[in-house]
C-alpha cells in the first residue's frame, strides 16, 4: 500500500475538491445565515452545488479554535458546533419542506473529527445534548427524504463519528492509504481500560472486524459502504451515491439506507452476524405474546 498525502485537518480543502468550482457559500443554508464568525468556528456549514444540484455541506475546520470554549480545536465538535450543525440541518429541512421527495436537497457531511468537547463547562451545560441534537436532526432529514452522504477524509473517532457521519444514508471513506482513522479508541488506551496486554490486542486487531481499527474493517461490518481510492474519486463517488440513495427513497427502500441499512450490509458482508440473530429471536418471542399486550376487545 503506497501511502498518500493525508487529508487530515483539511475539511475546507475537501469541500473545494468535491463541490462545483467556486459554488460553496459558507454560513448560508436556505433562509438561515450564520453571521457571527466566532460562533461554532469548528463547524463549517454552508451551501454549494454538486453537478448543479444544491446541497448542504457540513464539515469540521481542523484549524479553528473556539475561544469561548477552548477545549474545541483541531476539529473537535463542541457545544456551539453541535448545535450549529443541527441548525444547518433544520434549515435544510425547512427550506425544502414543500418540495417533493425527488427534490429534497442532499446533505454532504465531510468527516474529519477527533471527538466531542470534553470539558467541565461542557458537562455542566450538557455536551451530550448538543451532539444528540445534531444526530436527531440528521435522522429527521434522512427520514424526510434528504439524501445524506458522509465522506470520511481523516478522523472518524467514536462519539464524534456517531454524531457526524453515522446518521447518514451512506458512508464513504478514503481508503487506508490516506491514513484515514475510524475507531473508538486507540489500542493503547483500550489495553489499559480492559486490562489486556497490547500484544494480544494487536493480534486480535488483525483478525476481528468488530474490534479492529480502520476503514477496511468498518467496510466489512457494513459501517462504511464503499472505499474511495483517490482524492479525485470523492466527487464522482458522492454524486453516484446521492443518485442511488434518492432512487432508493423514491422506491420506499428506506430500510436499505442509514444505520438500519448498514446493519443489513454488515450481515451480508459477514461482519455482524449476531445482530440479525437477536432481531429474529426477539421478534419471534414478542409475536408469541403480543396478544397479551393489546387491548382486550
Amino acid at each position: 500500500m503506497d501511502m498518500q498525502e493525508s487529508m487530515m485537518g483539511r475539511g475546507r480543502d475537501a469541500i473545494e475538491m468535491i463541490v462545483d468550482a467556486g459554488s460553496f457559500a459558507e454560513g448560508v443554508v436556505g433562509a438561515k445565515s450564520f453571521d457571527d464568525p466566532e460562533f461554532g468556528p469548528g463547524a463549517v456549514v454552508g451551501t454549494a452545488t454538486l453537478q448543479g444540484t444544491v446541497c448542504t455541506i457540513i464539515a469540521s475546520d481542523g484549524g479553528a479554535m473556539n475561544e469561548k470554549f477552548p477545549v474545541v480545536y483541531a476539529g473537535i465538535i463542541g457545544l456551539e458546533e453541535g448545535y450549529k450543525m443541527a441548525e444547518a440541518v433544520y434549515a435544510s429541512i425547512l427550506e425544502d419542506a414543500e418540495k417533493p421527495l425527488a427534490e429534497k436537497r442532499p446533505l454532504v457531511l465531510i468527516v474529519d473529527t477527533p471527538g466531542n468537547g470534553p470539558g467541565k463547562v461542557e458537562e455542566i451545560f450538557g455536551m451530550n445534548k448538543s451532539t444528540a441534537a445534531y444526530q436527531l436532526a440528521l435522522a429527521e432529514a434522512r427520514l424526510k427524504g434528504h439524501p445524506i452522504i458522509a465522506m470520511v477524509i481523516g478522523r472518524a473517532i467514536s462519539g464524534a463519528f456517531l454524531c457526524h457521519g453515522l446518521q447518514a444514508d451512506a458512508i464513504l471513506s478514503l481508503d487506508a492509504q490516506f491514513g484515514t482513522m475510524i475507531h473508538v479508541m486507540p489500542l493503547t488506551s483500550v489495553s489499559r481500560i480492559i486490562r489486556k496486554d497490547l500484544e494480544t490486542l494487536e493480534v486480535l486487531s488483525k483478525q476481528s472486524a468488530v474490534f479492529a481499527a480502520g476503514p477496511r474493517f468498518f467496510h466489512s461490518l457494513g459501517g462504511v459502504e464503499a472505499l474511495v481510492e483517490t482524492l479525485d474519486g470523492m466527487r464522482p463517488a458522492i454524486v453516484a451515491r446521492i443518485a442511488e440513495v434518492r432512487a432508493a427513497k423514491l422506491e420506499g427502500r428506506q430500510d436499505d439506507l442509514g444505520p438500519w441499512g448498514r446493519g443489513k450490509l454488515g450481515e451480508a458482508r459477514g461482519g455482524r452476524i449476531e445482530r440479525p440473530r437477536v432481531i429474529e429471536m426477539m421478534s419471534r418471542d414478542f409475536a408469541a405474546v403480543a396478544d397479551r399486550y393489546a387491548p382486550s376487545r
Binding site: A132, Q135, L136, A139, E140, L143, S158, F161, L162, L166, Q167, H183, V184, M185, V190, I193, I194, A209, V210, F211, A212, F217, F218, L221, G222, G223, G258, P259, W260, R262, G263, G266, R272, E274, R275
Partner: peptide, 19 residues
C-alpha cells in the same frame, strides 16, 4: 471496547429508532 466497532454502529441504530 471489546467489540467497539459493532457497539458504535449499534448506538447509531438506537438513535435512528428514537427518531
Amino acid at each position: 471496547l471489546h467489540e467497539a466497532n459493532a457497539g458504535l454502529l449499534a448506538h447509531a441504530e438506537v438513535m435512528d429508532q428514537l427518531q
